[in-house]
């Protein structure tokens, strides 16, 4: 009789314990199923390379035309940006001004908006 009472019971009880543990585990797993937005999506969403590329292109324009940027080229950039990059782009180049260090540079205003990221910059180039 002690064989049954003291040794047989715990096999069933252990089984029960494991079962209950699994139940709780399942509840926890269910709770934590949702994960947030991943880093990769965040990186893809943020148009870092687009903005850098646009800046380089605008500086190339300034190199070529100075402050009288060719209207056709500006239109190229604005229209193609909207069509292919889905971004509203605007930029303007002002005549050179003297900045510290006695250098004469063009103030270049760049505006970029693709509905998720808005980027505005005035850079002296």
């Amino acid at each position: 009789m002690e064989g049954l009472n003291e040794e047989g019971q715990w096999i069933v009880l252990m089984g029960l314990l494991v079962a209950v543990a699994m139940f709780f585990l399942a509840l926890i797993v269910n709770q934590s199923a949702l994960v947030g937005q991943t880093t990769a999506e965040g990186v893809l969403e943020f148009p870092k390379n687009d903005i850098r590329d646009l800046r380089t292109e605008i500086f190339d324009c300034v190199d070529e035309f100075g402050d009288t940027v060719d209207a056709d080229v500006k239109k190229d950039i604005v229209v193609i940006s909207l069509e292919r990059k889905n971004a509203v782009v605007d930029f303007s180049v002002d005549p050179e001004v003297e900045i510290s260090g006695g250098r004469w540079l063009h103030p270049v205003k760049i505006h970029y908006n693709n509905g998720v990221t808005v980027y505005d910059e005035t850079v002296y180039y």
Binding site: H111, N113, G115
Partner: peptide
């Protein structure tokens, strides 16, 4: 991603 861009009024 609809948007209104104030500076260019687009």
């Amino acid at each position: 991603r609809w948007f209104y861009d104030p500076p260019t009024r687009t």
